[in-house]
Simulated assay, not measured.
Amino acid sequence: MPTASNGSVSLYYEADGDGETVVFLGDVGYGAWQWGWQHGGLSGPFETLVTDLRGAGRSDAPAGPYAVDDLTADAQAVLEAHGARRVHVVGAGLGGMVALELARLSSRPRSLTLLGTAAAGADLSLDPLFGAPDDPDTLESSLAAALSREFVDANPDVVEQIVEWRAAEDATRDAWEAQAAAVEAFDISDRLYEIDCPALVVHGSDDAVWPVERGRRLAEGLPRGSFVELDAGHLVGIEQSRAVNDRLFGHVESA
């Protein structure tokens, strides 16, 4: 099992495929399962590198609260351990904030793809997304805040599989709150001009937790930002996986 270390924190990651590296940084509380819809679409022509943020999955969960600075340093440690110098970064929610800060502070990112995220996290009500890993009922019911009702009703088998993955990989309440604190404290609204790599912002029009207007403002504030709105809830990469993968592939390939 490959791991990297940031001080005393052990961070899990896995890589697959060849070519330029695409690294995936996940959302509050979720394990690496959330990238299953993108991983298979890019592995082969690209190397995909998936890591669990501290607090979730197979990475350590030190006491919180966490800050985006901590998670950015974690991402740097993973990239150093893997030997990846220049990468394309895909981030969702909290992971999108980490991607933004990584691009602001370093020259590693060739491109950014940002799913359901924002330049600032104040006043977001993230709590509906939490489901206790040892409580299958809350794992399923909390998906109502992450996925549209139409998707949930049409895909019961997918929902059942997601619940199983969440039970195995998602953050406990304490670790979830530590990650959520990083979102609440983050704000680079007035520093987006410092990020000069091409950035694709993708947002679900029915996102009940991260309002679509925040994604639109993020794209407008980035010097090389573009915005795509898709008919989906917060987990747009799952609901609209084909549309997201097509745009992601084209964005990475052209960067």
Rank of each mutant, 00 (worst) to 15 (best):
L11W: 01
G64Q: 02
L200C: 04
G17H: 07
R149M: 04
G31P: 08
G83A: 04
D70L: 05
S106Q: 15
G26C: 11
Y66G: 01
S8V: 04
V23F: 01
I162F: 11
L230C: 04
L143T: 10
S226M: 11
E140W: 03
A122G: 15
E220C: 07
L218N: 06
E47V: 08
V228G: 04
E213R: 08
G250F: 12
P62C: 01
T3V: 13
R224F: 03
D170W: 00
V252Q: 01
A180K: 03
Q76F: 03
R173L: 11
V78K: 01
S226Y: 07
V202Y: 12
T138M: 04
G36M: 14
S189T: 14
W33S: 04
Y30I: 09
S205A: 15
V202I: 12
V183W: 00
R173I: 06
H39V: 13
L222Q: 06
D174T: 01
A56S: 09
P198Q: 13
W165F: 14
M97P: 14
L94P: 06
Q38P: 06
A92Q: 15
G91Q: 05
G237L: 14
A132Y: 01
M97A: 12
P156M: 07
G91K: 05
S106N: 13
S59G: 04
A181L: 00
G221T: 06
W165T: 11
A145G: 02
N155D: 10
P128E: 02
A171L: 00
D18G: 10
G116A: 12
D52I: 01
L235V: 15
A15P: 10
S107Y: 04
G83P: 03
D246N: 15
S10L: 00
Y12Q: 03
D153C: 02
L124H: 05
S10F: 00
R247C: 08
E160R: 14
D16T: 12
L192C: 06
S125R: 12
T138K: 03
G95T: 10
F46T: 09
A103D: 09
A61P: 01
A119C: 11
E213N: 09
A32F: 04
L115P: 11
T113G: 05
W176G: 02
A145S: 04
S141Q: 08
L235F: 13
G250L: 13
W35Q: 07
A77N: 10
F24H: 06
A144T: 10
L115C: 08
D74K: 01
